[in-house]
Design a protein around this nucleic acid. Structure first.
Lengths: 142, 142
DNA sequence: GTACGGCTTGACGTCGACGTCAAGGCAAGG
DNA sequence: CCTTGCCTTGACGTCGACGTCAAGCCGTAC
């Protein structure tokens, strides 16, 4: 199979495959015309890469999985180096989720506070002789 | 105050301040020498920008907050446009946290499965006449 | 013959928020 | 006078994973 077909079957692009090859991740054989040639096992390697990429793994982090598959293992994650990557990524995810959750709470709190302040201003605006609004504080959306 | 002092007081760099100015976010007056000049209110604007940046807001997303402060509001988030950004960011955070959590669970499951498989292989390796390991499956860390 | 689709390599563009380097001005201190 | 330090503008570099364009080859279909 040539590069276009492999790309289509993996749901990616030829540019991506050439990029992987340039990084030494997915080398290709060549036919008489100099065209890249792939087989079904390359498709499996590529699918492994793509899956990990979708999970947010860096390209370099997929290398142990690919090498594991290429070494003959039916699963890319059965080698120690892949397990190490799994564990590290798990820790990164936990840290990131924790940070994002913390930020989420902070932003939610700020939003609530700002909305309260806005509502109080709106009430004051109803009081005759109250302070003038400093800018347009009417519309909510858009 | 000049650019170096402002940067130091905000815990950032002069390059960052020039960048913000180039984006029209934090314009500066000039003194007789052509040097940028800032005052305390600029420090407040800058702190608002930096806080939001630390929360993961894009630079452009901080603009409504800065304009709100510059319009005379004591809080940068009291204007509708800022509230809109807050709500949008909250939704983004929720979506992202959800995705990451889902990925986290998937990766954790894969790791557990791979570790089980490795342990089973290790057990088989103890059986005399068992299959040869396909690669080095001994060390766990490093 | 020629148009077309697929392939090749090479190389520049993208995005965001700056980092880093170069060349030069201006004031204070020794 | 010279160094030091802070400032100026301009411009190129960074990072990751490709996108996009250019020029050209090859085989097949019309």
């Amino acid at each position: 199979m040539r590069i276009g077909e492999l790309a289509a079957r993996a749901g990616t692009t030829t540019r991506t495959l050439r990029y992987y090859e340039s990084r030494g991740l997915l080398p290709a054989r060549r036919d008489g015309n100099g065209h890249r040639t792939y087989d079904e096992s390359d498709l499996r390697l590529l699918r492994q890469i793509r899956t990990l990429q979708d999970f947010g793994f860096d390209l370099e982090e997929t290398r142990p999985f690919v090498e594991c598959l290429r070494a003959g293992h039916p699963e890319g994650d059965s080698c120690p180096a892949a397990l190490v990557v799994y564990r590290r990524k798990l820790a990164e995810l936990d840290a990131l989720i924790g940070q994002l959750t913390s930020v989420r709470e902070t932003v939610a709190g700020q939003l609530a506070r700002a909305e309260r302040a806005r509502d109080e201003l709106a009430v004051e605006a109803l009081v005759p002789g109250g302070p003038e609004p400093l800018c347009e504080l009417g519309g909510q959306e858009r």
